[in-house]
Design a protein around this nucleic acid. Structure first.
Lengths: 151, 151
DNA sequence: CCTAACACCTACAGTAGCTGTAAGTTCAAG
DNA sequence: CTTGAACTTACAGCTACTGTAGGTGTTAGG
């Protein structure tokens, strides 16, 4: 029951473009999958899961290098625990800062939507509220240049 | 006490590169600030706050268009309530999905760090856990192409 | 006052992470 | 066996920066 998928189905499953998958293969994030008689890629379920993981992590703004690090945790389960621990902890700290910031953003957006019920926007404090994190270095690795928005 | 900052100080304050600020000015995300005698930009505190907001939002993976929308909530407080409401609600939905996903990521990272205390990584389930969100369309606009990571 | 060092200026080229297009091949339905 | 969608490679183009070149402004020390 080796239900292998062609690249189009894989892309559909992961919610990304076909070219993105080929790109990930090219830069070594995904293995080079076996090919059909006619030279078409055939992806196993494991490939699809790995791809889905990459897409989710990208959607959250993790750069490919951080994703490479996270993936290495699963790829080399026999590597020293300290190394894995360091990667996981760094990502965890990053994730917690993101959550905190997003919760502040959510509070303010909710407040605005509430206020809107009453007619006009009196005072929009989105910027004030969300820019005042002065000493928070935020993330250690840079934000995706190209839209990490939504795939 | 108009404590205006030169571009270098502004960049330091916001945790970004000098060129990034000039870029934001160029694409109209930041106003063209007043200049000194010698033609150097002088940023007011309000500019810095706006810049800090943009950087935070970018670090979270929001594309510049979404940031433009958020900023417009503050820039045009007299705009129709329906328009503002639509923007705020769309962003709110996006933000809530991000929070949910990040919380799942946090749970799993914590689990790994816990497990790590015990010595070696027995079974790393990071990928399994985070790729199993099959039917979650996640975000509506694409992920930043270029690193939203950290600046 | 003069100069060295450093921050600023414009302009443009290069990078990451995709995304689209062109030109051609393969596969599955009818 | 044909038609058309899905695949192939290759390469150009996009977003959001980032770096570099070549020149000007600003400031600290002598």
């Amino acid at each position: 029951m080796a239900t292998r998928l062609t690249i189009g189905r894989a892309a559909e499953a992961a919610g990304c473009k076909v070219q993105t998958i080929r790109y990930y293969e090219q830069i070594g994030l995904l293995r080079r999958p076996p090919r059909s008689e006619g030279n078409q890629r055939l992806f196993a379920q494991e490939d699809i899961r790995r791809l889905a993981f990459i897409r989710h992590a990208r959607a959250l703004g993790f750069p490919l290098q951080a994703i490479r690090d996270l993936l290495s945790l699963g790829d080399e389960p026999e590597q020293s625990c300290e190394a894995a621990d360091a990667i996981a902890k760094a990502q965890l700290g990053d994730v917690e800062q993101r959550i905190e910031y997003l919760q502040a953003l959510r509070r303010e957006l909710k407040r605005m939507v509430e206020q809107c019920r009453g007619g006009r926007i009196a005072d929009c404090r989105v910027i004030e509220v969300l820019s005042d994190h002065a000493p928070c270095e935020m993330f250690n690795h840079a934000v995706p240049r190209s839209g990490v928005g939504s795939p």
